[in-house]
């Protein structure tokens, strides 16, 4: 198994404030890892340190050589003074052909947006375009920072189904942050529970029953996990949009 990213005793400070303390994690090729944790637990900072936007106060972040990263930020504000079509956005910073762009938009489920201005897109369309752009150059590691924020339940469920499909096609690792515990726990190979330090990590069911996790999230989400697992027993048609969120969202 190839290790793509290795955090070695990473400490991150924001002024005097400790954001991350002695974090040791690694991501191997092809796995889906989810980071959960309360607000202010350093989840986004961890991703931003990974892309190089934040420098650790101590410790090292080792990336595989020539690692291709696809990054979907939490939210992106494009200033209205900057004219930017979806097509142009996809060609940034590397030019792509029209054929590749069309294909990417079809894959992302937004085939008709090419000539639209980025600033006029809805939340869901915007996230899909961001994802399409992140996938263009076949990343080995896809980073999603609460990528489904602002999407409704069916929208985010579809988004995660798409992520799983993408992982299977590209065989890329996925590191994501999410608050939607019931969805995430079922779709991940590994869960990292973060609260300034790594509280616990492991397979979803292991983490969900860990006392550290329950101290942070309560036992309600465990029920949600159980409910969601039950989902796997029956197949949904593609056109079927119902989910079990009303039961799961306790």
């Amino acid at each position: 198994m190839t290790v793509l990213v290795d955090f070695k005793n990473v400490n991150l400070r924001h002024g005097a404030q400790h954001v991350l303390d002695d974090v040791n994690i690694n991501i191997v090729a092809g796995e889906i890892v989810t980071i959960v944790g309360p607000n202010g637990s350093g989840k986004s900072s961890l991703l931003r340190a990974l892309i190089g936007a934040l420098t650790p106060a101590s410790g090292r972040i080792e990336r595989a050589e020539g690692l291709r990263i696809g990054y979907v930020p939490q939210k992106l504000h494009i200033d209205p003074t900057l004219p930017m079509t979806v097509r142009r956005f996809l060609s940034m910073p590397r030019k792509i052909t029209d054929k590749v762009a069309t294909e990417a938009l079809i894959q992302a489920g937004v085939p008709d947006l090419a000539s639209r201005q980025m600033s006029t897109l809805s939340g869901g369309q915007f996230q899909r375009v961001l994802l399409a752009r992140a996938l263009l150059h076949k990343p080995q590691l896809l980073l999603l920072d609460e990528a489904t924020q602002g999407l409704d339940q069916p929208g985010s469920a579809a988004f995660y189904r798409h992520i799983e499909k993408v992982r299977d096609e590209l065989d890329c690792a996925v590191l994501m942050i999410s608050h939607e515990l019931h969805v995430v726990m079922s779709a991940s190979d590994r869960v990292i529970c973060l609260n300034g330090h790594v509280c616990c990590e492991g397979k979803p069911d292991v983490v969900a029953s860990a006392p550290e996790y329950r101290a942070l999230f309560g036992s309600g989400t465990r029920g949600a996990l159980a409910l969601y697992r039950h989902d796997h027993d029956h197949a949904h048609g593609d056109g079927c949009n119902h989910d079990h969120s009303h039961e799961a969202a306790e």
Partner: peptide, 16 residues
């Protein structure tokens, strides 16, 4: 291209 990417989002630039 680099100036433009950095203008749209510093984080997207870092990731690239």
């Amino acid at each position: 291209q680099k100036l433009l990417t950095a203008t749209v989002s510093p984080d997207l630039a870092y990731a690239n």
